[in-house]
Nucleic acid binder design. Structure first.
Lengths: 197, 197, 197, 197
DNA sequence: AATGAATGAGATTTCATTCAT
DNA sequence: AATGAATGAAATCTCATTCAT
């Protein structure tokens, strides 16, 4: 099924990993092509065999991993029927990702601010998943939105996302002990209080 | 007799303001000394009359404004006696700051991730103010911390900070309408649910 | 199969030669990277493909050419058995070098003062070659050192080196006519008077 | 007799000394106006109250101190009648200067190579004093110049100057112990051998 | 005379990228 | 696919100097 190929690429994966690591550790702008290549143990020019340029690499990595994270969240949510179970499943799935692939998690969720201005507006983001989750729960009557429902669901999603993320950040900067997954239940309890569910 | 002075500084404030603006808009690393100088309408070399180099400028601006924000939060909290009133006061004060001086707010609260690795560990941060706020409320019996009290207070502060911040971010990226201050009451309600107070 | 190489270096030698020429003509500090690159007909950045920075280039050039000069002196001396013949051979060899490769000679012998403070103390210098020459002659009984032998051999080497060098300098500034090699016999006569040999 | 003055200048001497020290230690080109001012404990602008610019300062310092050294040598020589006594007197005078004011000595004798290209050709230099010394001794019959007398006297002066100087350099770089004056007799003995006097 | 502030020109070095092998 | 060499543009910072006080 695989396409007939010459030699398998040798530099692509090392470059991908090195880039991810450095982007997360230092930020995208602070990371140079030279850094990435050295870290990957290949030449700088090798990068241009696999991506058109640095910007292309950043965008490819970001959209690919973003899609992964969104899919992960949506599939976790899809396995459950009630809001409480869905929140727990989403929290566990994303925190497991954080523990197992912290680079992917941090790259997608933290680096997006650095890229904010250059991203297409129609990308589906984790925030959108959470907003939909809340809207569907409201539609099912599991939670009651006060006042402007749209507005309120957005605000609640902000609170949820913020709570989820800040706990992860606290583990990252040592204020909370890792692994992050151990906090999933407590964070979910707080999240459900936020939703009054 | 004054000790023969040169002329009064003319470039410092413009540079400070331009830097703040550009750092927030584009990120610290993406902003060059040339950008800052042009924006301020002075020469690039003028920057080096007032800061040792770009890094020094970033650090100085950050620590100065961080101290301002921490002081703002602490004085808002100090004027109130109950947890609910304190949370509301802190939220209003910081959201008012966001509306009136969005640059300072965003610089301090958002840029810190870009600087995270290079900051001294003993700086007092807004997070620490919130952690203390919660601990004192628990000591007064206004809230009950379950399980490990230290641990729980940190987790709650993460949820609070995350909720506060993410709402601000949503206003920044258009998911919520501005000004931010109009959301202070709703955010505070959510925060108090988090604290079960 | 050779391990996939890039292209052969095209800028290295031109840079080396241009640097040597300009360092000698204007001094190391007065010569900029831009000067060197222009003189070599390559880009400024090319320098950084072959040396870490300007300082590294200066040090590399100096130590390499210093080793050449030391080797030249030692091999000239090694071909002769008596002190008189050795001094003459060393003088001729170095003066021939001055006439044929004035850049190398002047770079090594004159630029060392500009670098004095930053050079490793254990480098073998032409002075050391001469000191050894005198010591061995004393050991063979060809000359008699009065007083403290160590001390005296150093003083004599200073006189020898000074005499050799100053003659070269005089040719450089026009007090004496070139080529320098024509003065080798006369200088050697003076040198042997210094050694009373 | 002194001209009616306001306040005596406060910055001039510190600047002069700092410049001398740094020029000798690092070379003229490697020493910046900022270095000099900091070392002197005054502002950079103060330099321009006393010299037109850096180049003017360098030239003033050089020509003033050069004249001092030349005068010192000539007066030492003038007190003696025979060549041997004159050489000894000149050597002692200059080595005493080296020990007492090493900065002046080194500035004049060593820095001249860095300035060589920009100096007026008609300046009377220490080398010229020595050449005259030898010519007069030859005229008096104290020494016999072989071959082309002019040529030979220049060569001998090169040897003399080189011997004098290199001994000083050896003290500077630690190959010979200081103070330099202790070597004056030995160096003079060598010098007289050079002159066969 | 002396200063702190400010500057334009230029220094060194880094950047992302292209080229030839 | 991958490399080492090379580059133009831009980055940060330094330089000697001038200005206003």
């Amino acid at each position: 099924m695989l396409p007939a190929m010459g030699r398998p690429p040798k530099a692509r994966e090392p470059l991908r990993l090195a880039a991810l690591e450095l982007f997360v550790k230092q930020g995208v702008h602070a990371t140079g092509v030279r850094d990435i290549a050295r870290h990957a143990g290949v030449s700088e020019a090798a990068l241009y065999c696999h991506w058109a340029n640095k910007e292309d690499m950043v965008h490819s990595l970001f959209t690919e991993h973003l899609a992964e994270v969104v899919a992960l969240l949506e599939s976790a949510i899809a396995t459950e029927a009630t809001l409480a179970a869905q929140v727990l499943a989403a929290c566990r799935a994303s925190y497991r990702l954080y523990d197992e692939q912290p680079l992917v998690f941090r790259f997608v969720l933290l680096v997006q601010h650095e890229l904010a201005s250059q991203l297409p507006a129609n990308l589906r983001m984790p925030q959108d998943v959470v907003i939909d989750l809340i809207r569907r729960a409201a539609a099912r009557g599991e939670i009651t939105l006060r006042g402007d429902a749209d507005h309120e669901s957005v605000l609640l999603s902000a609170a949820l996302i913020g709570t989820f993320l800040e706990a992860a950040i606290y583990v990252g900067n040592g204020r909370l002990p890792g692994p992050l997954l151990q906090h999933a239940d407590a964070v979910t309890r707080i999240a459900l209080r936020i939703l009054r569910a």
